[in-house]
């Protein structure tokens, strides 16, 4: 058991982006390449030291036969440059890379960058247009003569609903305060919609078109912590059991 855990912990995969230098080979002749490279390195000896380098052989694709890949690798290593592969190789170049002990790198990572960039765009774009909750939140009192409708979602009111006010929702209705007005949940036929109120003393309650007016709401159906739901075709008004 312990051994297994240790085996797993001995390896770890991590995605990392590293910078590589691309060395475009424009001339197949080693001596010419060596001379040119030496001159470049004389100008900036530390510039390429230890840098992972990809070879781009596109410019010499016509004269690949005369390119001594093993000699080129040796030449680069001697000068502190670390060739790791051949970039976007053709079939012939891949064979050459294999011969020189190099990798044939088909992906240059730009698609990774693109994927990464896209996910970043999503992340940075997120706060600008946050996913809108279908619920409607009202934090001020709903007064007599006012109407509040939450289409396609729940209605949440953290204040009072006065007598003479009307609150409607396609979903559930939650009132964290006294509910004294008219209330309709499941306005477009959702029979599972419910009404919850911290204090229920309504003029009318309705769920999915089934309604009860104040006259038919009994005293025991009024009070604190009440909920209204549809049972078959009859409205049930009862205390929320905790």
């Amino acid at each position: 058991m312990t051994a297994e855990v240790r085996t797993l912990a001995a390896l770890e995969f991590k995605g990392r982006m590293i910078t590589v230098t691309v060395l475009r080979v424009l001339e197949p002749t080693l001596s010419v390449l060596a001379r040119d490279l030496d001159r470049r390195l004389a100008e900036a000896p530390e510039l390429l030291r230890g840098l992972p380098t990809l070879l781009d052989l596109d410019a010499v694709s016509a004269s690949l036969d005369s390119l001594d890949i093993c000699g080129l690798v040796r030449l680069l290593l001697e000068r502190g440059i670390t060739p790791i592969g051949v970039r976007s190789p053709s079939a012939q170049m891949s064979a050459l890379a294999k011969k020189g002990g190099l990798l044939a790198i088909t992906s240059d990572g730009t698609d990774v960058i693109r994927r990464f960039a896209e996910s970043k765009v999503q992340m940075t774009a997120a706060p600008v247009t946050p996913a809108k909750s279908p619920a409607l939140l009202i934090t001020h009192p709903v007064r007599s003569g006012q109407q509040v409708y939450a289409p396609e979602g729940d209605l949440i009111i953290t204040s009072s609903v006065s007598a003479g006010a009307e609150i409607l929702a396609d979903g559930h209705v939650h009132v964290y305060g006294p509910l004294r007005g008219r209330v309709m949940a499941g306005l477009r036929g959702d029979t599972s919609a419910r009404i919850f109120a911290l204090h229920l003393d309504p003029e009318l309650v309705a769920i999915a078109g089934n309604y009860r007016i104040s006259e038919y709401i009994e005293d025991r159906e009024r009070g604190d912590n009440m909920q209204v739901y549809l049972h078959g075709e009859s409205l049930k008004i009862e205390k929320i059991k905790s």
Partner: peptide, 13 residues
């Protein structure tokens, strides 16, 4: 009081 509630609604909107 009911009328005042109505007025408060108008003040708010």
């Amino acid at each position: 009081v009911r009328d005042s509630d109505r007025i408060l609604g108008i003040l708010a909107s």
